[in-house]
Amino acid sequence: MGEEIDKGATEPRRVTRLIRLPEVQHRVGLGRSTIYRWMSEGKFPKPVQLGGYAVAWAEDVIEDWINSRLS
């Protein structure tokens, strides 16, 4: 029925934090229009739909994008 939890697992479970547009803008140093333009061009990760018009990005996806730009 449900998934069993592996009590012998040694790796801690990583919780994905969702961040909204203002925090994404702050972290990447880009404006809203640039983020959305780059998303349409495939240069920036797309957000996940939260419901209605609300969207957010997975924090680890944004961190990976930043790290790829620094490399």
Rank of each mutant, 00 (worst) to 15 (best):
M1C: 11
M1E: 06
E4Y: 11
E4P: 07
I5G: 00
I5W: 00
D6C: 02
K7N: 07
K7S: 10
K7Y: 13
K7I: 15
A9S: 12
A9D: 09
E11I: 14
E11C: 07
P12V: 07
P12T: 09
R13M: 12
R13F: 13
R13T: 14
R14H: 13
V15A: 12
V15F: 11
T16V: 15
T16I: 13
T16D: 08
R17Q: 08
R17N: 05
R17P: 01
R20P: 08
L21K: 02
L21E: 07
L21N: 02
P22E: 06
P22G: 09
E23P: 03
V24Y: 02
Q25E: 15
Q25S: 09
Q25R: 15
Q25H: 03
H26M: 13
H26V: 12
H26R: 15
R27K: 14
V28P: 00
G29M: 06
G29W: 04
G29H: 03
L30A: 08
G31D: 13
G31M: 07
G31Y: 09
R32Q: 09
R32I: 02
S33E: 12
T34R: 13
T34N: 10
T34P: 03
I35F: 08
I35R: 05
I35E: 06
I35T: 05
Y36A: 06
R37M: 07
W38L: 15
W38G: 00
W38S: 06
S40E: 13
S40H: 07
S40F: 04
E41A: 12
G42Y: 05
G42C: 06
G42P: 07
K43H: 11
K43L: 14
F44Q: 06
F44I: 07
F44P: 02
P45G: 05
K46I: 00
P47M: 03
P47E: 02
P47K: 01
Q49H: 12
Q49L: 04
Q49R: 14
Q49P: 00
G51K: 04
G52C: 03
G52A: 06
G52M: 03
G52S: 05
Y53K: 15
Y53I: 09
Y53D: 12
V55I: 13
V55C: 09
V55G: 02
V55L: 02
V55M: 07
V55S: 12
A56K: 01
A56T: 01
A56E: 01
W57I: 07
W57Y: 10
W57T: 08
W57L: 07
A58H: 10
E59G: 01
E59V: 01
D60A: 14
D60R: 13
V61R: 11
I62G: 04
D64L: 13
D64R: 15
D64S: 15
D64G: 13
W65L: 08
W65N: 03
W65T: 05
I66E: 05
I66H: 04
I66W: 03
N67S: 14
S68G: 11
S68I: 09
L70D: 01
L70V: 11
L70W: 02
L70M: 10
L70C: 03
S71E: 14
S71C: 02
S71L: 09
S71K: 14
